[in-house]
Write a protein that binds this DNA or RNA. Structure first.
Length: 569
RNA sequence: UCGGGCAUCGUCUAAUGGUAGGACGUCAGGUUCUGGCCCUGAAAGUCGAGGUUCGAAUCCUUGUGCCCGAGCCA
């Protein structure tokens, strides 16, 4: 347990890296600002699927609650009925659950608070802090001014409280058409912060809501709903991304105007990852334009995509811990994510032998019709994983790339006259190469050394290379889907460098291999089961997989030092 | 142009006025029945200019660069 390899088993707190939010919370706890309480929330809008960037937020919010012995709510920010759908709610729940977080029944919706929000709006009107504006959307935009010039007051800004109350009541009663009127806060049309130039609180939207149906025809804007929802839930620290920084003065203004519980908003930098895109719009385009097979395509950075590809949730946690939390915009190298996947899989995934591109090898001096059961360790990193047996016989398959008729130097694999170890079995020597009409290698003839069996007294003889293999008679056919990063360039989301991000798509992001041969035990893999295919990478059974037709997704390759050497020549 | 924010190895992130450290990546080597894992080592950073201080990544001034903001989206 003290083995550094097993640090994943260390208590959460020990792996919890420092970030700038901790001292802020520590100070609040010292001063007693929130009575020593720490309560966070993860607030997705149910209008799409969660991705790895959301995982950073989820791990942060739930992680802070865990670190400080507090709680974290799951709250759906469903204030826009034209974009949100119930089906996303279940998908989001599933993703958060997959990451292993439990919101303990504290599942809330901004729509739960529509009544309270309405009453508070009336309170603001009574206090002269909100008014109904008849200006059109275009006019409001014009009156708002620009980044460098102040706005102007709406001609409707100084209506009486009675008139505002009446108009707001009629807005709610459905007397006006969409867009005809809005309720705005009366703050400061000259503010340098555009969010304070009389922001809209309510707009008229005669659209059914996924939870409240047609109860409402006016819906609160994000700014009006979010802070108050935090307040109602007793949230202490409202963690959000950097683009909401300009909204904080408004967040504070509403809570102060209402005189209710006032959480602290804290902003952090959202995650960017190389070789992928994380914008909802671009992800949607990938799905809609058929560049990927769906939201859970294993190439997608969505949590459902990662899950289907076989990424363990522990790796996502580890990744989120390692990237840290800061206020500077940054782009994390996807190599770090891949490392986290390998790091966990190395310790957790049982080894199996699978030949992806088969080449037949006949061992001439091995008796026909004979076979033996070789003992194979399931995971050299985990003795407790035990052993299994693998059938060996006269005809086997090896990987095509593990044989070269005319090998470069430093090639440790099979070649005419060369010797290699067959993992868990014998040392063989290549005696002859059989070719087809086009001169292609179709079969390799070898002789084995009976004294070299794995685990035998004489088995210790050293050879440079060790190959994985399967017995031709025993192996089963399988489909294997090889995935690579979706984009060839580091930052496909950079619209200046790449106006059309789909032009950066990696043409080799998916390669389907249908004639693979795998150990028979693999046919019984259940969807989601993860393995290391020896020397080939980490794989997981796809949800399409059946015992008759097993299908595996490559989650990530192994580190490949040979590929690096070969590339350099 | 106005308001807000951010600049530390290639990348991400620590250092709370006192030895600039870790991780990924890269390179070199060791070990190995996985060219995996593991182990050892190396290269690699405080945006620029002034100032305060015994001492500055940290504080001050100033410059530069980048990000966010003009939805009845979130």
């Amino acid at each position: 347990m003290n083995d550094p390899k097993h640090r994943q088993d260390a208590p959460e707190a020990e792996r919890n890296a420092a970030n700038f939010i901790h001292p802020l919370i520590d100070e609040d706890n010292r001063s007693g600002r929130f009575g020593g309480r720490v309560h966070t929330r993860f607030p997705p809008e149910p209008n799409g699927y969660l991705h790895i960037g959301h995982a950073k937020s989820i791990c942060l919010n739930f992680g802070l609650a865990r670190r400080y012995g507090g709680q974290c709510n799951l709250r759906f920010d469903d204030t826009n009925p034209t974009r949100e759908e119930g089906r996303f709610v279940e998908a989001i729940r599933e993703d958060v659950r997959w990451l292993g977080f439990d919101w303990g029944g504290r599942e809330y919706f901004a729509s739960d608070y529509f009544g309270q929000l309405h009453d508070w709006a009336v309170e603001l009107i009574r206090a002269g802090k909100a008014y109904v504006d008849d200006l059109s959307a275009d006019a409001i935009r014009e009156y708002r001014g620009t980044l460098s010039e102040p706005g102007r007051d709406s001609p409707y800004r100084n209506r009486t409280v009675e008139k505002n109350l009446d108009l707001f009541r009629r807005m709610r009663a459905g007397e006006f058409a969409d867009g005809e009127r809005v309720l705005r806060a009366r703050i400061d049309m000259a503010s340098g912060n555009l969010n304070l130039r009389d922001p809209v609180l309510y707009r008229i939207l005669k659209a059914p809501h996924h939870r409240t149906g047609d109860t409402w025809c006016i819906y609160p804007m994000y700014d009006w709903a979010h802070g108050q929802s935090d307040s109602i839930e007793g949230v202490t620290h409202s963690i959000c991304t950097l683009e909401f920084e300009d909204h904080r003065p408004l967040y504070d203004w509403f809570l102060d105007a209402l005189g209710v519980h006032h959480p602290q908003q804290i902003e952090f930098a959202r995650l960017n990852l190389t070789h992928t895109v994380l914008s909802k719009r671009k992800l949607l385009a990938l799905v809609n334009n058929g560049h990927v097979a769906g939201w859970d395509d294993p190439r997608m950075p969505t949590l459902s995509g990662l899950r289907r590809r076989g990424v363990p949730p522990q790796s996502v946690h580890d990744f989120c811990e390692r990237i840290g939390v800061a206020r500077a915009n940054s782009t994390v190298d996807i190599a770090l994510f891949d490392h986290c996947v390998r790091d966990f899989m190395n310790r957790a995934a049982p080894r199996m032998m699978a030949v992806l591109r088969p080449l037949k090898v006949v061992i001439e001096n091995y008796p026909e019709g004979r076979s033996e059961e070789m003992v194979a360790e399931n995971n050299p990193e985990d003795p407790a994983a035990g052993t299994r047996t693998v059938s060996f016989s006269r005809e086997i398959f090896i990987e095509r790339e593990d044989f070269m008729e005319d090998p470069p130097k430093k090639y440790f694999r099979l070649a005419p006259g060369a010797e290699v170890r067959l993992k868990h079995a014998y040392i063989i020597r290549c005696e002859k190469v059989m070719k087809g009409a086009a001169g292609e290698v179709v079969e390799v003839l070898c002789r084995y050394d009976p004294e070299s069996k794995s685990g035998q007294a004489q088995g210790g003889r050293k050879v440079k290379g060790t190959l994985h293999w399967v017995s031709a008679a025993h192996a089963v056919r399988a489909e294997v889907r090889l995935y690579e990063h979706l984009f060839t360039v580091e930052n496909p989301g950079d619209e200046k460098a790449h106006p059309d991000f789909t032009a950066c798509l990696n043409p080799r992001s998916l390669e389907v291999l249908t004639d693979c041969r795998v150990e028979p035990g693999l046919a019984r893999a259940n969807p989601g089961d993860r393995f290391q295919f020896l020397r080939m990478g980490y794989f997981a059974a796809d949800r399409d997989s059946t015992e008759k037709a097993p299908v595996f997704n490559r989650t990530v390759t192994l580190r490949d030092t040979w590929a690096k050497i070969a590339r350099k020549g």
